[in-house]
Amino acid sequence: MKVGFIGTGSMGSLLIESFIQSNALKPQQISASNRTHSKVAELARRYPGLHAAQSNRETAAESDILFICVKPLESKAVTDEIRNVITEEQIVVSITSPVQVRILEHALKAKVSKIIPSITHQVGSGASLCIHGSRITEEDRSLLEELMSHISRPIRVKESYTRITSDFSSCGPAFLAFFMDQWIQAAVQATGIDRTELGALTGEMMIGTGKLLTEGGMTPAELQARVAVPGGITAEALALLDSSLHSVFPKLIRATHNKYEEDMQKVNVSFGSKPINRQQY
């Protein structure tokens, strides 16, 4: 099986490296292309056998599965470039959430899926969100999800829930990192504790918390109840967080969804599709 990657920026290169390091793919199975060829050449240098293609058409032509890892508004130019070399037997996977499956199915003859990855795949963890198109067979689904299972937990979602699920699986690590960074900064200022020491402690706490929510079978509400003794320190702090952050999360969802809708409209227009009625949050 040959797997191609168009776009080797942050997420494209992360997928390539994660697949290789997890032994899901050998370098010899991978072809990649990028606007800046030196970036692909560097990957080929680090992973001997990986083919640094000279063009996106070359990558597309020699791939059984083709990952398109470009920014939303670059998708139209990529599909125009590869359209004539893509066949009905190939599988094209977009990792860009605002690019709808129906748009890609109209632009290309291939079987189409959308898979939204996460930075957590770098350590073989997290969920990958799978949205499969109408031409994808059950065999194709199994092939793609088996590949993703080497670096993540593949989860099938409805395309209408792409944004909200991406908020948690893809944006979530950054949101949690922001919260932790602010908390650590306040602790350092208040007590003088070493930032590195506290950062390591925070990382271990997050790993343990994640395991309680997955392997331990706890819900977030149950975890809070187990830790927060009535009248205790944790309960006091949770009450503060509840009163201070009450309106933050609805605003967070509105912000991500409105940006998503804006990007999706621009993508649709670039492909010549009629704008859709925006859903307000």
Score class of each variant (00 low, 15 high):
Lys2Asn: 02
Lys2Val: 00
Gly7Leu: 01
Ser10Asn: 02
Gly12Cys: 00
Phe19Ile: 01
Phe19Cys: 05
Ile20Phe: 05
Ile30Tyr: 01
Ser31Ile: 15
Asn34Phe: 07
Asn34Arg: 07
Ser38His: 11
Arg45Asp: 01
Arg45Leu: 08
Arg46Thr: 08
Tyr47Pro: 09
Gly49Glu: 05
Gly49Tyr: 05
Thr59Lys: 15
Thr59Met: 14
Ala60Trp: 14
Leu66Met: 09
Val70His: 06
Leu73Thr: 01
Thr79Glu: 13
Glu81His: 13
Ile82Pro: 02
Glu89Cys: 08
Ser97Cys: 11
Val99Ser: 03
Ala107Asn: 03
Leu108His: 04
Ser113Thr: 02
Ile116Asp: 00
Gln122Glu: 02
Val123Pro: 00
His132Gln: 09
Gly133Glu: 08
Gly133Gln: 05
Ile136Ser: 04
Glu138Ala: 14
Asp140Gly: 04
Ser142Asp: 10
Glu146Pro: 00
His150Asn: 03
Ile151Met: 02
Lys158Phe: 12
Lys158Gln: 14
Ser160Met: 13
Cys171His: 06
Ala174His: 01
Phe175Asp: 01
Ala177Gly: 00
Phe178Cys: 07
Met180Gly: 05
Gln185Trp: 10
Ala186Tyr: 07
Thr191Phe: 04
Gly192Glu: 00
Glu197Ala: 15
Leu198Val: 11
Lys211Val: 06
Lys211Ile: 10
Leu212Glu: 06
Leu213His: 12
Thr219Asp: 10
Pro220Gln: 14
Glu222His: 08
Glu222Pro: 10
Gln224Leu: 15
Val227Gln: 05
Ala228His: 12
Thr234Gly: 07
Ala235Lys: 13
Glu236Tyr: 15
Ala237Cys: 09
Leu240Lys: 14
Leu241Thr: 06
Ser244Phe: 15
Ser244Gly: 09
Ser247Gln: 14
Ser247Phe: 03
Pro250Gln: 12
Ile253Phe: 15
His257Ser: 13
Gln265Phe: 10
Lys274Asp: 09
